[in-house]
Nucleic acid binder design. Structure first.
Length: 742
DNA sequence: GACCTGCTGCGGGATG
């Protein structure tokens, strides 16, 4: 057997694996182990350290983790161990289950897929024999701890490893804090350390990711960073100019440039598989509909399929099947539903309409193309700018849309991605974890809860007095109550909430209407998107008339029509990192032309540079235009948000706007703004409580409504602002303006 | 001018 000889000759790690796993690798005809696998096996097989594996999407990360883990679980022949694998999405659990079960069948090791769609009979069988591999979501794990807390020590008695897949998808989120807390609670239940394994393809900073995996112990995590062969990139940004007079006259008509972009997509993408990312669900609908119509007009089979989170599973699977079907050419118009885990096979190119939300996201998207040996990863960018007019805003004059996109692409080429955002406090999730801990243990001492969740857990930023404040507030809201003995229990309201299944998710979800046509569910629309009877809408790439709206049953009935308009989906704003603004400024100051711009985009680049020079933005920080003053910091959105709060507190009417802060009412005067900035710089940075005094409407996360005011402000500020960064900038500004005065 | 993710236990009734 040649295959066997190859594997043995080139690999020492191979010999460390259980013989049955070696045999399985031979029968699968794998000639060599991948780099990540080769290095992960010795790191994991001894079960004596935490490991972070960073490797490209198709580099066999799952096997890299499971070959040595299964080997370790099988080593004790009398008592097979347990491994818990945690995934952010159900579809990934289903995928991994199919891959893993083929192997584990041979090993006589049970694999337990575990999420909301799995029957309780399978789950009950696990409770009788808790060993093997459990593939689970954080929410299902939360439910297990909540409802079977007393059994936790027995259930996890044999737990050896916790594997977290798509680690980057958790970092910096409510679910991430929840996950860290769950891992901590499992370890406490069994009274010992359990080895943690993180898997990811898109990590901006491995040290921070390691620290996320093991709070206060990141430096001891073994990091395996496997860069497989770098893929050749083929990048292009095409520029388009929207005639402004037409836009003003016909508000409702689709923009002229949209139809140019649609035509270009049609011409370049037909005949191959591609993904198109227009950034919003509404635009996914618009483009899918427009491309479908174009196919109809040209009398060719439609090759364009919509995909986003509000479409029914049914419709999403149609799109996924079209992409996987080798007999068809298919292009998906999608949101980041197709950015994560689900396997849709290799695609030829990615089209990005408008700049992406982050460089990390653009890289993840691009990772979907160029997966076959020798093929490049192709990114086609499209940027629309409005025609220049006398009254054009600064934004339009500077062509910030093009410069943002170009800066991001140039950073992508340098392999830079945003570092993970780990300083969010997420006190909302602390409340959830406290209530869940009470459920798990049937009551908990306040000091014990503080130690578990804050001192040793993922919420170390909360001091003891603040924690007690929070408990008192939760008591007032009847979420918790304290027994005479000091034990914390659920209050009447807390009891009701914890006993409903909606408790297990750490993140908030908006209520939605189901959209139904002839008893087929097409998907859902958020309650907030205003839709009335008789409206014509675009949904799932087709047009419909709204027939009835059932408020009780939360259902919208529609029928087919021939015209319609994409519905409005609401949402927050992305946060641009300061590094991108820095790169934009270098582009304005430079004279070179990035190789990835087409002729029209180069013209826009020149127009932007002309405006930058004309406004003398290299020398000045403030610029009066129309009735406003712009404070051009060129900082990231979080720093600008903090500066805007500082100015707002001084009584100015302001709004953070791209690379600048816009100050309304020119009569304010540049002097007054300069004075505010110097005053801010001369004092130590204010805390959130001072900065957000008198500011309302700060609730963003699921349990924010139950936080005492000052903790809500602290949590909000940690997520939305960088006060220290803003302060550092103000100090630089103050020093520079002093020099000018002398 | 943002996007996405997730969900138990129990009881009643039908079916094999």
């Amino acid at each position: 057997m040649i295959v066997r000889a190859d594997a043995e000759r080139t690999s020492t790690a191979f010999g460390m694996l259980d013989l049955r796993i070696q045999r399985w690798i031979w029968t699968e005809k794998w000639s060599v182990l991948r780099d990540a696998q080769e290095r992960a096996i010795p790191a994991l097989v001894g079960c004596d350290r935490d490991v972070l594996i960073a490797a490209a999407t198709a580099a066999g990360k799952t096997e890299a983790a499971f070959f040595p883990i299964l080997t370790h679980l099988l080593a004790d022949t009398r008592d097979t161990g347990l491994c818990i694998y945690i995934s952010p999405i159900k579809a990934l659990i289903n995928d991994q289950f199919m891959r893993l079960e083929r192997l584990c069948e041979q090993l006589e090791l049970p694999v337990w897929p575990w999420h909301g769609d799995i029957s309780s009979s399978s789950k009950n069988r696990f409770f009788k024999q808790p060993s093997g591999v459990v593939l689970i979501t954080p929410e299902s794990l939360e439910a297990m701890l909540c409802n079977r807390g007393f059994q936790a020590p027995q259930l996890f008695a044999k737990l050896r490893y916790i594997v977290v897949d798509e680690l980057h998808a958790f970092i910096g989120t409510e679910r991430g804090k929840q996950l860290q807390s769950l891992m901590q609670r499992m370890e406490l239940a069994v009274g010992r350390k359990v080895m943690r394994v993180g898997l990811s393809a898109t990590l901006g900073d491995l040290g921070m990711a390691a620290e996320f995996l093991r709070v206060r112990g990141g430096s001891a995590v073994e990091v395996i960073n496997s860069n497989s062969d770098p893929v050749r990139l083929q990048l292009e940004i095409k520029g388009y100019v929207e005639p402004s007079h037409l836009l003003a006259e016909q508000q409702d008509a689709p923009a002229i440039t949209t139809s140019f972009i649609v035509q270009d997509l049609f011409d370049t993408l037909c005949g191959s598989n591609n993904l198109v990312f227009p950034n919003t669900r509404g635009l996914v609908e618009e483009y899918a509909h427009a491309l479908g119509r174009l196919c109809e007009q040209q009398r060719v089979t439609n090759e364009f399929w919509p995909h986003h989170g509000n479409l029914s599973r049914d419709i999403r699977e149609e799109t996924e099947a079209a992409l996987k079907n080798k007999a068809l050419h298919a292009t998906a118009i999608c949101t980041n539903t197709l950015e994560l885990g689900i396997d849709v096979g290799a695609v030829k190119s990615i089209a990005q309409i408008g700049s992406p939300p982050s460089v990390a996201s653009m890289r993840q998207r691009l990772g979907r193309s160029g997966r076959r040996p020798g093929e490049p990863a192709i990114l086609r960018g499209y940027v629309t700018e409005q025609a220049l007019a006398k009254d054009s805003t600064l934004d339009i004059q500077l062509r910030t849309g093009l410069f943002t996109f170009a800066a991001m692409v140039s950073l992508l080429e340098e392999k830079w991605v945003e570092p993970p955002q780990t300083n969010g406090l997420h006190f909302s999730t602390l409340i959830q974890q406290l209530l869940s801990l009470i459920a798990q243990r049937g009551g908990v001492q306040a000091g014990d809860a503080y130690r578990t969740l804050c001192v040793q857990g993922p919420f170390p930023a909360l001091g003891k007095p603040d924690f007690l404040d929070m408990l008192r507030h939760l008591g007032k809201l009847e979420l918790i109550q304290q027994e005479a003995s000091g034990v914390l229990l659920h209050g009447t309201k807390g009891e009701r909430i914890v006993n409903h299944y909606s408790f297990y998710a750490a993140f908030a979800a908006e209520e939605e209407y189901r959209v139904v046509c002839d008893s087929r569910v097409l998907g859902s629309l958020p309650i907030s998107s205003s839709v009335s009877i008789g409206d014509y809408i675009v949904f799932a790439g087709k047009t419909w008339r709204v027939e009835t709206i059932d408020e009780e049953g939360k259902t919208i009935l529609v029928s087919k029509t021939s015209t319609g308009k994409a519905p409005v989906f609401t949402g927050g704003k992305g946060q641009l990192h300061a590094k991108i603004r820095e790169r934009m400024r270098e582009l304005y100051r430079g004279t070179g032309v990035p190789h990835f711009l087409d002729a029209a985009a180069v013209l826009l680049l020149q127009e932007g540079r002309d405006s930058y020079a004309r406004c003398r933005l290299d020398q000045r920080v403030m610029l009066s235009m129309g009735s406003n003053i712009y404070l051009l910091t060129w900082l990231g959105d979080k720093q600008n948000e903090a500066l805007a709060a500082v100015l707002r507190k001084a009584g100015l009417s302001v709004s953070a706007s791209g690379p600048a802060i816009e100050i309304f009412a020119k009569e304010t005067g540049e002097q007054r703004i300069a004075h505010c900035l110097r005053a801010f710089a001369s004092q130590p940075p204010p805390d959130a409580q001072q900065l957000l005094a008198g500011v309302f409407n700060l609730r963003r996360e699921k349990w924010d409504w139950a936080l005492p005011e000052h903790l809500l402000k602290k949590s909000y500020a940690s997520l939305q602002m960088d006060v220290a960064g803003a302060h550092a900038w103000a100090q630089q500004y103050a020093a520079a303006s002093q020099e000018q005065d002398h």
